[in-house]
Design a protein around this nucleic acid. Structure first.
Lengths: 329, 329
DNA sequence: TCAAAAGTGTTATCCTTACACCCATGT
DNA sequence: ACATGGGTGTAAGGATAACACTTTTGA
C-alpha cells in the first residue's frame, strides 16, 4: 500500500523537455509566436525541443533543474514556467534504436521575451510555432491548407470505420467537434486533441515513423518533430491559449511598454484568431490589466498610439485576471 | 541539447500516488465525496493515499500500472483516470528518515462508484474528503470553523509581514482573494491555493512536521496526511471541481440511473456549494447531458421523482458538455 | 489631401440569477 | 388533510457580440 510495493526499486531516468515560447518582436509588423528548437536538428532532420536530464543531486526541484540547464545550454532566461504533463510511455523512444531506455519525460511550458535574448541562442533557434501547426492559424480566416490537404485526408479516414456506430465517439463526430466542420465551432484551445486525431488518422510524418500508419502521407502536414515533441508542443499551445483567458500570462511575452494594438496582435498570435478591436479594448479595460504610461508611440505609420504597461496590482485585486477573448471575427 | 546531457543517467524511482474519489451512496441522505486512504495508517497515525511504484518493465504506461496495482491492492475498479502533477522535490520524504530517496511521485485523480466496490477494500477505506478540508464545505453556508479557527490564525499571519508592501502579493490580499473575506468571492476551484496558503501560515500539522512552522497549531485544521498527500488531494479536489464544469465527469460517480435531486446533491457535494434548484435543472436541461428513463423513484418521502440516465451522445454533440454551476445561493 | 492606424458610442441578444408558485405521492 | 419532496414559468440584470463612425498624425 505504501511506497515500496515491489521487491526492488525500479530506477528510470527523468528527462525534462521544454516548450519555450516567445513572440517575435519587430514593431510594425504582426508578431509571431516562436518556439525554441535545437539548432543541430533543425537543419536537416526533425526539429527537437530542448531537453535535458534531471539531476536530483544537483537540483532540488524539476523547475530549478530546468532553469539551470536551459540558461546554460541556450542562454535563454526563462520567465513564467509551468509543468504540462509527464509521459511514461515505454517505447516512445523505441524507433530511435535505443533498447528500452526507461526514460520518463516531464514536459514544461516556459515563456520568455525575445528582447531579452542576446542575439540568438548558441545551440538553439526560434521558429514560428505555426510552422509545426499550420492548421492552427486562423488569424487570416480559415487556413486554406485545411480544405486543401487536411480535411480530405481526415474525411477519408472518417469514412473507413466512423459510420454511425463508432467505438465510442464516431470519427465523423470527433472531426466535426474538433475542426468545426458542418456548423462546429473550432475551439482554439483543443490543439492537442486535434493533433492526436490527425496522428491517429496517420496524416503526420510521426505516425508513419512510429508505425501507426501504413500509407505515407501525401503531403507534409506541418514540420515534424523528434519523438513526441510535437505532442508536447501541442499541449503547450493549448495550455497557453486556455491560460491566457484567466491569467495575465500574455504580459510575460510583451515588452515593458506596448500599445493596445500590439497587445491585441499578440493575443491574436497566440490564440490564432482574429479579434474584434473595440471588444478587445473593452475587455482589456474591464479586466483592468493595463495602465497608460502617458507616453506615445510614433512607430507606426498613422496616428500615434498611447503606451501602456501591465498593472501588477491586478494580481491582488481580481481572482482570475485574464483576457477572456471569445469574439469570432 | 538532446536527451543525454550528463555523463551518466541519474536514475530515480517513480511512485504513483492516487486520489481515488467516490460518492457515498445511501439513497435518502446527502451524498458525501469520499477519498480512499490506506487502512493501516488511518487508525492512529497520518492518513495516506494509496501509492505504489511504477514498474516500467511490467506496464507500458503510468495509467496501466496505476490501474493494475490499485485493482490488486485495494480491489477498487477505476473509471475515469487523470494525471494531476509530478512532484520532484528532493526532501519531501526527508522527515520520514529516508536518506535522499530520489523518489519522483506522479499524482493521479481517479473516479469510481461506491456501488461497484464489494464491501470495503481489503487494505483501504473511504473517508469523507471534507474531514481533510473542512473549510471547503460551504453547502450549509460559511463553515463556522472558518471564523472560529482559520481566519484568526490567517489574520495573525497576514499581520506579520503582509502590510502594504508585501513581497509580491501582500498576504492580506491573497487572503481576501482566496477566502472571500471583505467582499471577495471564494472561488471553490482554488482548493490547492488555499491549502498552500494555510500551510505557509503554519496552521496545518504538516507545516510543523516539515519544519516550516515553529508555533504548534493550536487546533488541528482538518485531518493531516502523510508526506505531501494532502497537497495531492487538494490538487485533485480543485481539478475535479473545475473539470465538472466542462466535462461530464460527475456521471462517473453516479449510479446508472438517478434522480435530478440526487445529481444536484452530488454536484453540491463536489463543489462544496449549495445550488439553486431551478437553475440547476435548467442547466442540466440546457447541457442535454441526461435523458429520462421513464421510470420513477419512490425512495424518498414525498412525490416520486423521475429517473434519468447519462446521455453518452453529448460527447459527440457538444464541445464542452458539463454542468457550469455558478449560482451563489 | 490622403493614407494609415488609433480610438470611441450604441444597440441587439443571450445567458445568468433570482423570484414564487403548483404538483403528486405516502402516511 | 398534510407533510414531503418534485417540478415549473417568468422577469430583471448583466455580459457579450456586432454594428459604423470620428480623430490624429506622417508623407
Amino acid at each position: 500500500m505504501t511506497q515500496s510495493q515491489l521487491p526492488h526499486p525500479l530506477p528510470v531516468e527523468i528527462g525534462l523537455t521544454a516548450a519555450i515560447v516567445a513572440v517575435s518582436g519587430a514593431v510594425g509588423d504582426a508578431p509571431e509566436p516562436m518556439i525554441l528548437v535545437a539548432r543541430a536538428a533543425s537543419a536537416i532532420s526533425e526539429a527537437a525541443l530542448p531537453s535535458g536530464s534531471f539531476d536530483p543531486v544537483a537540483h532540488r526541484t524539476f523547475e530549478i533543474g530546468l532553469r539551470a540547464w536551459v540558461a546554460e545550454q541556450t542562454g535563454v532566461p526563462l520567465g513564467y514556467v509551468e509543468q504540462l504533463y509527464t509521459f511514461g510511455d515505454r517505447g516512445r523512444l523505441a524507433q530511435a534504436g535505443d533498447r528500452d531506455p526507461h526514460v520518463v519525460s516531464v514536459g514544461y511550458l516556459a515563456l520568455t521575451r525575445t528582447g531579452e535574448i542576446a542575439q540568438e541562442a548558441p545551440d538553439a533557434v526560434f521558429r514560428p510555432w505555426y510552422s509545426f501547426f499550420p492548421w492552427e492559424d486562423w488569424r487570416a480566416g480559415r487556413p486554406e491548407l485545411l480544405d486543401r490537404l487536411l480535411m480530405p485526408g481526415l474525411e477519408a479516414w472518417a469514412a473507413q470505420a466512423g459510420g454511425v456506430s463508432g467505438p465510442r465517439s464516431s470519427r465523423r463526430e470527433r472531426l466535426r467537434l474538433l475542426f468545426g466542420a458542418e456548423g462546429g465551432r473550432f475551439d482554439e484551445d483543443n490543439v492537442l486533441e486535434r493533433y492526436e486525431l490527425i496522428y491517429e488518422a496517420g496524416l503526420v510524418a510521426e505516425a508513419l515513423r512510429d508505425g501507426r500508419s501504413s500509407a505515407p502521407a501525401s503531403a507534409p502536414l506541418g514540420q515534424p518533430m523528434l519523438h513526441d515533441h510535437r505532442r508536447i508542443l501541442a499541449t503547450a499551445m493549448g495550455r497557453l491559449r486556455a491560460k491566457m483567458k484567466y491569467r495575465p500570462v500574455i504580459f510575460e511575452l510583451m515588452p515593458e511598454t506596448f500599445t493596445l494594438t500590439a497587445l491585441q496582435r499578440t493575443a491574436e498570435a497566440i490564440s490564432g484568431r482574429h479579434l474584434h478591436k473595440q471588444n478587445f479594448r473593452r475587455l482589456v479595460e474591464a479586466a483592468a490589466v493595463v495602465e497608460a504610461t502617458g507616453d506615445m508611440s510614433h512607430a507606426t505609420g498613422g496616428r500615434p498610439a498611447a503606451l501602456f504597461r501591465f498593472r501588477r496590482e491586478v494580481l491582488q485585486e481580481r481572482p482570475a485576471p485574464g483576457l477572456r477573448v471569445g469574439a469570432r471575427v
